[in-house]
């Protein structure tokens, strides 16, 4: 899937130009070797390495926005690619003994590229730590990029089950699972239309994140139902937190595309782990939510 390549048009052009210049310089200075002189194994080895370096370059460019870290990574990989490229050309073009620049291209570009790549990876790691900090409350302990929900960018139910399995495995630690959903969301969706209803869920996700603690985890369970894992939290503390979330959503004035204000209420269910399996805990929290939903709201 091509997503980010268009951001890096100039970088791609620069790499292509550089590779062409090296090729032209080789052709201008030397002569092609005869077929019997060519060591095919060397071509396969060095050509394969050049090809892989080029592929890494493409993957990096396609996954990253522009910026300092990207520039380091691209410069480093370009150096490595050019060094291998010269290596391959050496196998098919004979340069006169008097020419020395090809050794410079080969032996100079490689270490320079390595240094730049190292610098890039170092800054990449710093950047990743900053992103991890931003992702807190959206993921805990392990990362699985396939489990992000498309609409809210929260993790989804399979991630919740795996996460709970890990939390519940730690003996002696209280864990409470909270389930939340929008009261009568089915009606809300029919009245607002799908696009506004989807946006409502996205904004609710942000609002809930703002009201959670650093170690809590928010997942989108399914539809309009969210799950919050509250590690190290007993029932009383969880009830207080639930009250805070309900109050926050009560005061959230969502604006439709027409600019009208739409208020909603949250239904909440809680279940504190008592040695259950993840599925059983999720089931208890769901049942608690459904039981409380049936009761009329306090006046």
């Amino acid at each position: 899937m091509i997503r980010m390549l268009h951001l890096h048009r100039w970088k791609i052009l620069a790499v292509a130009t550089l590779a062409n210049l090296v090729l032209l310089a080789n052709l201008a200075a030397g002569d092609p070797k005869g077929l019997e002189e060519i060591a095919w194994l060397d071509i396969a080895g060095e050509g394969g390495a050049a090809l892989l370096a080029f592929l890494w370059l493409g993957l990096i460019l396609n996954s990253r926005p522009s910026g300092r870290v990207t520039n380091y990574l691209v410069a480093g990989l370009t150096g490595i690619f050019i060094a291998y490229w010269q290596d391959v050309l050496d196998e098919v073009i004979r340069l006169p003994e008097a020419v020395v620049w090809d050794h410079w291209v080969e032996s100079g570009a490689m270490p320079l590229g390595m240094v730049l790549l190292t610098l890039g990876i170092y800054h990449w790691q710093r950047e990743q730590l900053a992103i991890n900090e931003q992702l807190r409350r959206r993921e805990r302990i392990f990362r699985e990029h396939r489990s992000f929900d498309r609409l809210t960018n929260l993790t989804s139910a399979p991630y919740l089950r795996r996460q709970l399995a890990m939390e519940l495995g730690e003996a002696g630690r209280a864990v409470t699972l909270m389930m939340l959903d929008v009261n009568r969301f089915d009606h809300v969706r029919r009245q607002l239309g799908s696009r506004d209803a989807d946006r409502l869920l996205q904004e609710l996700a942000e609002l809930l994140l703002l009201n959670l603690r650093q170690d809590d985890l928010l997942c989108r369970y399914a539809g309009d139902r969210f799950a919050v894992v509250l590690p190290g939290t007993g029932e009383r503390e969880a009830t207080l937190l639930a009250g805070e979330l309900i109050a926050a959503v009560d005061h959230f004035a969502f604006k439709t595309r027409q600019g009208e204000t739409r208020l909603q209420r949250l239904d909440v269910g809680l279940a504190t782990a008592r040695g259950d399996e993840p599925d059983a805990l999720i089931e208890r929290a769901n049942q608690d939510l459904e039981a409380r939903r049936e009761q009329p709201a306090p006046a």
């Binding site: 959903d181 369970y221 399914a222 309009d224």
Partner: peptide, 12 residues
């Protein structure tokens, strides 16, 4: 493999 969708969209 996705019982949560049934649970939320249909019922318990």
């Amino acid at each position: 493999a996705y019982p949560e969708q049934y649970r939320v969209h249909l019922g318990s």
